[in-house]
């Protein structure tokens, strides 16, 4: 979400808080699983259909190079992008890496707050917190929070969401 420093048009600053630095390893692990599956499939193909092995090795080398590049660049880039902030009136998140998205929702329109720990996330002690509004297009997801931060955040958001009456549509 960069901006040319020369221009002075109004734009949004990024949210204040970074996620846990451990998230870098979580993203690496998650992406690595996909790459490992792909490489295993290629090896099976190579062993199962021996033939012009030059092509096989070339394909394997390209895949490995792409995987290494992706696993080095993506998690670090993501870590710089993924941010969140809660103000007295709104939740503000930023996510993505190559494509980036910022989401803002007023606290008065929050409906549910979910915290989720998948198998890989549990390995790294991380939590994903999702703040849902009444819109199917608007869940605000914060991935890679450490447990203490996530718990505090969920409590804070739930308490605030409770304060506004009505069904928040």
């Amino acid at each position: 979400m960069g901006q040319d420093p020369r221009t002075s048009a109004p734009w949004l600053r990024p949210p204040r808080h970074l996620v846990s630095p451990v998230a870098v390893w979580y993203w690496t692990a998650r992406a690595a699983i996909g790459w490992v599956v792909l490489i295993v499939l290629e090896v099976i193909w190579m062993v199962g259909f021996p033939g012009s092995s030059g092509w096989h090795w070339a394909l394997l080398a390209i895949t490995a190079a792409l995987a290494v590049g992706h696993l080095i660049v993506m998690p670090r880039w993501r870590y710089r992008v993924h941010r969140w902030e809660v103000t007295p009136v709104a939740v503000y998140t930023q996510a993505g890496w190559f494509h980036q998205e910022r989401r803002i929702a007023p606290l008065s329109r929050l409906q549910t707050v979910d915290s989720e720990r998948g198998p890989i996330e549990q390995l790294f002690g991380l939590v994903k917190v999702t703040a849902n509004t009444a819109s199917a297009a608007g869940p605000l997801r914060i991935t890679g929070l450490d447990r203490a931060t996530a718990q505090g955040l969920v409590e804070e958001l739930t308490a605030i969401a409770q304060q506004t009456p009505g069904d928040a549509t």
């Binding site: 901006q3 002075s8 600053r13 204040r16 808080h17 970074l18 630095p21 809660v86 929070l145 931060t149």
Partner: peptide, 16 residues
């Protein structure tokens, strides 16, 4: 913000 966007924060900031 108007004008140059503040540089991205490198150090992790603790939650609220």
């Amino acid at each position: 913000v108007t004008g140059p966007v503040p540089a991205p924060l490198e150090a992790p900031i603790p939650g609220p």
